[in-house]
Simulated assay, not measured.
Amino acid sequence: MRVLQLIDSLDAGGAERMAVNIANVLSESVERSYLCATRREGLLKDAIASNVSYLFLDKQRKLDWPAMIKLRRYILKEKIDIIHAHSTSFFMATLMKWLIPGLKIVWHDHYGNSSYLEERKYGVLKLCSRSFSLILSVNSVLETWAKTNLNGDEVAYLPNFAIQETVISQVTELKGVAGKRILCLANLREQKDHHNLLQAFKLVGNHHSDWTLHCVGQDFKDAYSESVYQLVTELDLEEQVFFYGSCPDSSAIIKQADIGVLSSSSEGLPLALLEYGLGQLPIVATNVGDSTSVLPEACREFLVAPNHPEHLAERIMVLISDDYLRETTGKVINQHVLEHFSAMAVNDKLMSYYSQL
């Protein structure tokens, strides 16, 4: 079995990390594992395992004939059986199916705005879904939506998973005082709702002025990121809140932090929470998407409603005020993530799906 993971870019986002994680894990399970970035390379290129075959198309437009010809030739040359297309790369995968009818197409839905599915535009996706042999959804809401609105042969739920790095090389050094750092791993996108987080952290700072907030994630240099920086200034938080952009060493960054937060208004299944869990960080997060499944029942008191900075701040301060609670909560979440979101468990399920195709 030869399987190609197809993704638009290798920026440090959740869908991109999953494409790389799956390609790496499959390299130990299938005859040959491949990964293709269609539009852009990025930080995650360095995370691709050496035994994964990699292709970059440098696609410039939606119908880019040179890129299509290059991918078609590669698929035929390598005798690839399955294209596992992530997020918006479904269109290129469908074109390949039309050109090579024997291909099997798996589409993986990582849609982060699953709380606002009524706003989703999916006309082209619905047309293309006739070519999908399998649709994989990262949470139960998306699974139900796909069964109702798309035309794939089969729809199934496949949870995200994070990989524990065996060698952690530190590139990024967090500012602030060791032992008093709050970490947010989230690209600067509107759905991540950094405004909610900043407002909550302002309340935290009124009681714990020596704690700092560290935001790691891609800055798209747009109106949203500008509004985030403006709010930092308005709240007079320039000395307590730090931004690092995209970083290649998230595991090392987590080692330097003491509490992991996620303040999103909408999510699929947040990979950041799994990474916090692997790093034994206690978590405070908004209860959106499948966040509930990441935290064991004993820790769900640290899930709060979205867009309620007062509640977010209150839960953060509960952890700040109790060193022992932070330590035990982190360990309980770690065990839960290892049991339910391990690479091996997801790999076995995925191999079963592939085999049925």
Rank of each mutant, 00 (worst) to 15 (best):
L4S: 04
E118F: 15
V241W: 04
F90H: 02
Y34D: 03
E238V: 15
R120Y: 14
E190R: 10
S89E: 00
G179L: 09
D193H: 06
T329P: 10
K192G: 10
K97G: 08
T233R: 08
R120N: 14
A305K: 14
K147L: 13
V171L: 14
S265A: 10
C184G: 09
L338E: 08
S87R: 03
L213Y: 02
V124W: 08
I182R: 00
S342D: 04
Q335M: 09
I320H: 07
T144K: 08
T212S: 13
W107Y: 06
E143Y: 09
K121M: 08
D46V: 15
L303E: 09
T329S: 10
D290P: 06
S293T: 13
K59W: 11
L44S: 10
K255N: 13
I163A: 06
Q5I: 08
L273D: 02
K192Y: 14
I82A: 10
P296R: 02
G176D: 05
T172M: 08
A200I: 04
L103F: 12
P306G: 05
V3C: 06
Q164W: 15
L231M: 03
L142A: 03
E234C: 10
D64F: 11
L231R: 00
L43I: 15
I82L: 07
T144W: 14
Q170I: 11
D109I: 10
L235M: 06
Y276E: 01
S29N: 15
Q280W: 07
V346P: 01
